[in-house]
Design a protein around this nucleic acid. Structure first.
Lengths: 358, 358
DNA sequence: CAAAATAATGCAAACGTTTGCATAAATTCA
DNA sequence: TGAATTTATGCAAACGTTTGCATTATTTTG
C-alpha cells in the first residue's frame, strides 16, 4: 500500500480503460474537434462515471495560467471584528456569484491593512491570475505601487483621477447629493453629516452633501459634521458621545446603513423619535435596511453590476490594458426613516397591548 | 517578445544569479538543513529582493497535495439573496482567519443546494485538500454520500448521531433551554417558539425549549410554535402574518437574531413595546445584536472555536481518521430585549426632544 | 596518512496535464 | 490506381517545482 487513501483517478487511468492515449483523453475532455465523436462520447461517459476531475495544478502549470481570482478583504489592525462592514459582505457575495458564473474560482483572503503589500504573492505565485481589492481605504499609495509592479488589481473604491489601477465605485457625489436633497425636500434645516472625510468615498459624499446645500441656498455648517468611523463599536461610541453634546439637528445623513441604524438605536434610547423628531438617511441599502424599525431610507449602490465590473477589471488588468474608472449610478430608496406625513399605521391590527402614540 | 507581460521570475533565475543549481535554491527557500548557512542567506535575500514567490501549481503537483481548503456556502435555489444569514458570514470571517493563521488558502464557493454533489470536484481536482460545508440544511443524505466516497468534509451543523462525516456545531439543545429558562425567569408565561423544526439545529433548540418548559412544570402549547424560515424576506412575511393572527404570547424565542430583529421591527410598528409588553430572545449573538434598539438578548455560539474545530476536522478527514462530532458550549447574553426592571435610562442626557417615558 | 565520515552541492527523474508535430488510416480526386 | 487530402490518433516535450541519489570537497578518525 502506497497511500492511506486510494490514489485519485487521472487521465492515464481513463486512457487505459478506453484503450486510447492520454492525449486523446485530454482532447476529448477539452471538447477538441480533433477527436472522433464516438470516442469522445465513450471517454466523457467514462470520465463522468469515474467522477474524474482533472488536476488543476497540472493544468495551470502547463497552461501557464490559473483560473482563480483572489479577493482581498482588508482588515484594520486595530479592529478586532471578524468581518468589517455588512456592505462588503454583500459585495463579496455578488463577487462570488459573478466569478463562478464566469468559471473562475475565488480565493478569499483577509489581509492586515499594514501588510497590504503581501498580496502581490497571490499573483506572482500563480495562485491567482489577478486580485480584487475590496475597499481602498487609505492605501492608495500601496495600491499604486502594486499596480506599478504589474500586479493585476481592480479595486472597489472612490474614483481617484489619474490612478494607475482599475477602480470600480459608485457615484458617491451624486449619492451624497440625493440623500441631502431628499432631506431638504422633507423640510429639514439642520442636516448633520456623519462620516470620516479622510476616506475618499466619504469625501465625495460630503461634496455631494455640500452641493445640495449650496444649490438650495444654504451654507455648510462645520458644526453639523462628525467624523464617525465605519467600524461598529467605534461608531457607537462616537455617536453616543456626539449625541451627548449636540442635539441641534433635525436630520442625519450617515455614510453607512450600519451607522444609521446605530444612530437610530441610540436616538431611540434617548427618547428621540425617528422620523417624527429627526429624519435619518443611510448609505448602502443593506438588505437589513428594510427589516428594521423604522425601515431605513438609504442610498443604493448597484452591487451586482459592481461585481461584474470588478471581475472585468481584473481580467483587463491581467491583459495589460490601460486602467479605467467605472462609476456606477446611485439611487435613493425612500423608506420610513424619512416619512413626513403622519406615520400611516397600516391597519392597526388587534394587537395585544397597543399603546396609542407609543 | 513572447508575452505582453514580463515573465515571472522563477527559481532558475535565482539559481543563475546566485551561481547555484535550482535544487539548492529550492532547498534554501524551504529552509532545509542541507544547504550552507551562508548560501541560504544569499539566496533568500535574492529571492526577497526579486519578490520571488514559488509557483504553487508546480509545488502542489510535485508534492501531490495542495494547501487550500474549500469553504462552501450553500445557497437555496429559491432564495435570491446574495448571502444567506449574517451568522454564516461571521463564521466565514472566523474561518478565513483560522485558515490563514494556519497557512492554508481559502477557496470560497457558493453552491446551489440542488448541486451539492458538485463540490466533490473541488477535492478530486486537487484544488483543495478538503471541504468545509457551512450549514447542513436538509442535505444529510448528500453529505453522507460524499463522505462515503472519501471526500474529506467537515460540516457546520447539528450533531447527528452515527453520521459518517465530521460535524461541528454548538449545543443547540442547551441553547434552547437557556433562552427559555431565562424567559421563564423573567416571568413570561406564554413563550412562542419561532423556527422551522425540519432543520436539525432548530429541532434541537425546540427540544431545549420543551425541556425548560417541562422542568418548570409547564406544557408545550402547540399554538405557541411557528415555523418561521431563516431567509429574511420570507421570515418577514411569515412573521407579519403570524402577528396579524395571534397576539396571545408574552415572549418570543427566535431561532436567529435576524428573525428576532425583524420580529422586533414588526411588533414595534404595531405599537407593541419590547421588552415592556413582550420579551424577545434571539439566537447567534450577531455583532449587530448590541447595536440595535432595544439591544437583543441572544444565545451565543463560540465562532472562533467553531472555525478552529472545522479546520481541524477537515484535516482529520483528509488523513482518513474516523469522523467525530464536536459540540461547543452555548451561552446566553442578556440585553435590553428581556429587561424586567424599569428600563434604566442611563443618565438621561440634555437631549433635544426627549419624550418622557416614550 | 589512508580511510571513513560529514557537509554541501548538482543531476535527473518525477508530478499530471496540454499541445506541436509526426504518423497512420480512410477518403477524395484526377 | 496512385497521389493528394482529410481525419483521427499517438509520441514526446514542455510547464516549475521537489527530492532521491550520486558526487565532490572537507573534516574527522584510528
Amino acid at each position: 500500500m502506497k497511500k492511506t487513501q486510494a490514489n485519485k483517478t487521472q487521465m492515464v487511468d481513463i486512457a487505459r480503460i478506453a484503450g486510447v492515449s492520454v492525449s486523446t483523453v485530454s482532447r476529448a475532455l477539452a471538447g477538441s474537434s480533433l477527436v472522433n465523436e464516438e470516442t469522445r462520447k465513450r471517454i466523457t461517459d467514462l470520465a463522468r462515471s469515474l467522477r474524474f476531475s482533472a488536476n488543476v495544478g497540472a493544468q495551470n502549470l502547463r497552461r501557464g495560467q490559473s483560473q482563480t481570482i483572489a479577493v482581498v478583504l482588508p482588515k484594520s489592525t486595530s479592529d478586532q471584528q471578524p468581518v468589517s462592514d455588512p456592505f462588503f459582505i454583500a459585495l463579496l457575495g455578488e463577487l462570488a456569484d459573478a466569478l463562478t458564473s464566469q468559471g473562475y474560482d475565488m480565493l478569499l483572503t483577509r489581509v492586515d491593512e499594514a501588510r497590504i503589500d503581501d498580496i502581490e504573492g497571490l499573483a506572482s505565485s500563480g495562485r491567482a491570475l489577478g486580485i480584487v481589492v475590496i475597499g481602498q481605504w487609505l492605501h492608495h499609495y500601496a495600491l499604486t505601487a502594486l499596480a506599478g509592479r504589474g500586479v493585476p488589481i481592480a479595486v472597489w473604491g472612490a474614483a481617484l483621477p489619474g490612478s494607475n489601477y482599475f477602480i470600480v465605485g459608485s457615484d458617491n457625489r451624486i449619492g451624497g447629493r440625493l440623500a441631502t436633497e431628499h432631506l431638504i425636500a422633507c423640510g429639514c434645516r439642520k442636516i448633520m453629516f456623519l462620516g470620516d472625510t479622510r476616506l475618499p468615498e466619504v469625501a465625495l459624499r460630503f461634496e455631494g452633501y455640500r452641493d445640495a446645500l449650496i444649490a438650495n441656498g444654504k451654507m455648510v455648517n462645520p458644526g453639523l459634521t462628525a467624523a464617525i468611523p465605519f467600524e461598529a463599536q467605534a461608531a457607537r461610541a462616537a455617536l453616543d458621545d456626539l449625541f451627548a453634546h449636540t442635539t441641534d439637528f433635525d436630520a442625519l445623513f450617515a455614510c453607512s446603513d450600519l451607522m444609521a441604524m446605530t444612530a437610530n438605536a441610540l436616538l431611540s434610547a434617548r427618547g428621540v423619535r425617528v422620523p417624527e423628531d429627526i429624519k435619518v438617511v443611510g448609505y448602502d441599502d443593506l438588505a437589513l435596511a428594510s427589516q428594521v424599525h423604522p425601515t431605513l431610507t438609504s442610498v443604493r449602490q448597484p452591487l451586482a453590476e459592481a461585481a461584474r465590473a470588478l471581475v472585468e477589471g481584473v481580467l483587463q488588468a491581467k491583459d495589460g490594458n490601460a486602467p479605467t474608472m467605472t462609476v456606477l449610478n446611485t439611487t435613493l430608496v425612500k423608506r420610513e426613516s424619512t416619512h413626513t406625513v403622519q406615520t400611516a399605521k397600516k391597519k392597526t391590527s388587534p394587537s395585544a397591548t397597543t399603546k396609542k402614540q407609543r
